[in-house]
């Protein structure tokens, strides 16, 4: 069981995490955050393996990974 947590208002929607997630479960949300970007979000969290690749490629340190 693993989980990722996004600091939503820090996300600039660059999509590097969505490109590298091996499970392809990260997508940009429809809504916008405080800065006006569509932030990254995970809908099917049960598929997360906690590999932390998303967090390692994130330029804004938005993601915390729990496992």
């Amino acid at each position: 069981m693993a989980r990722v947590e996004f600091n939503v208002d820090r996300c600039k929607g660059c999509e590097l995490c969505t490109a590298f997630c091996p499970q392809k479960i990260i997508k940009l949300a429809e809504g916008i955050n405080k800065m006006g970007y569509h932030p990254a979000a995970v809908e099917e969290m049960d598929k997360c393996t906690g590999c932390a690749i998303c967090a390692r490629v994130c330029p804004d340190c938005v993601i915390t990974v729990y496992k």
Partner: peptide, 27 residues
């Protein structure tokens, strides 16, 4: 569940001025 990845202590907890996707943030 324990934390396996989080912001390093030496990195300030602020939003950077870098453009979206700029890899300065990773460095």
């Amino acid at each position: 569940m324990k934390v396996v990845f989080e912001r390093p202590r030496a990195l300030s907890d602020v939003t950077s001025h870098y453009c979206p996707g700029c890899t300065h943030g990773i460095i």
